[in-house]
Amino acid sequence: MPDRIKLASQAPAAIQAMMGLESYLGSTDIPLSLKELIKLRASMINGCAYCIQMHAEVAMKMQESPQRLLALAAWRESPRFDARERAVLALTDEVTLIAGQGVTEHTYRQAQQLLGDALLAQCLMQIITINAWNRVAVATQMEHDCR
């Protein structure tokens, strides 16, 4: 593969701005396990191997079960996710695939009902941010150290 630019060295202010989002997200009320489910699901949809590797490792360190991590690829058919996780995963799918149908009223209202406005806003920012990181990693062909 040809070498691609490193955005951290070519556009450090942009990466610093994204790190500001990460700082904000670190202060939210989103449970850590739910953050990792959001990050993994969006990364799976976006085909971002770098982020899948990174967030699967984080989730496993947080004692997330391998069965749930594997079931994330087919979360709609899996009984391993509760109603709130399902609402957030549906929101993650629709925001990540926004060009398809946008975010449906059903998905939005379900998430709002189960999360409330504040947590819904925080989850939306988590989804938006991981999608941005996925695009950085895929566009620049970032590779996660697998050693």
Results as ranks from 00 to 15, higher is better:
A74H: 06
G20R: 12
Q16E: 15
H106D: 15
M142S: 11
A74Y: 00
E22S: 15
R84P: 02
M1I: 08
V95F: 08
E94N: 04
S27A: 15
T140Q: 11
E57H: 12
K61C: 00
A59W: 02
M125S: 12
V138I: 14
A73Y: 00
P66H: 05
I30P: 06
A59G: 07
L34D: 01
P79C: 07
M19A: 14
L40R: 09
T104H: 08
A73H: 03
M18H: 13
E143I: 12
R41C: 01
M54G: 06
Q16F: 10
P79T: 00
I128P: 04
A139F: 08
G47H: 02
C123E: 00
D82K: 00
M54C: 03
D3Q: 15
Q141L: 09
A87C: 03
T104W: 04
P12L: 12
Q113P: 00
A83G: 06
V138L: 07
L69P: 02
R4S: 12
Y108T: 10
A132S: 14
E143G: 09
I98F: 13
Q101M: 00
A118Q: 15
R86L: 08
Y24Q: 10
M125V: 14
A71R: 07
L40H: 06
A17Y: 11
D82L: 02
I5N: 04
T104F: 06
Q53T: 04
D117K: 11
D82S: 00
T140W: 03
I45E: 05
P2A: 13
A83C: 01
D93F: 04
R84G: 01
Y50N: 10
G102R: 12
A8R: 14
A90V: 00
K6G: 04
N134R: 06
E85C: 04
T129D: 12
A121T: 14
D145I: 13
A73D: 03
M142C: 05
V103N: 10
K39D: 07
W133Q: 09
I15D: 10
H144K: 10
Q126H: 15
L32I: 11
P2C: 01
T96C: 12
A73S: 13
R109S: 13
E143L: 12
A118L: 07
R41S: 06
I52S: 08
T28K: 10
P66D: 05
R76W: 01
L21W: 08
R135D: 02
Q110E: 15
I38H: 04
D117Q: 13
Q67R: 04
T140H: 09
R80T: 03
L25M: 12
I38L: 10
Q126W: 14
Y24R: 09
A14T: 14
D117T: 12
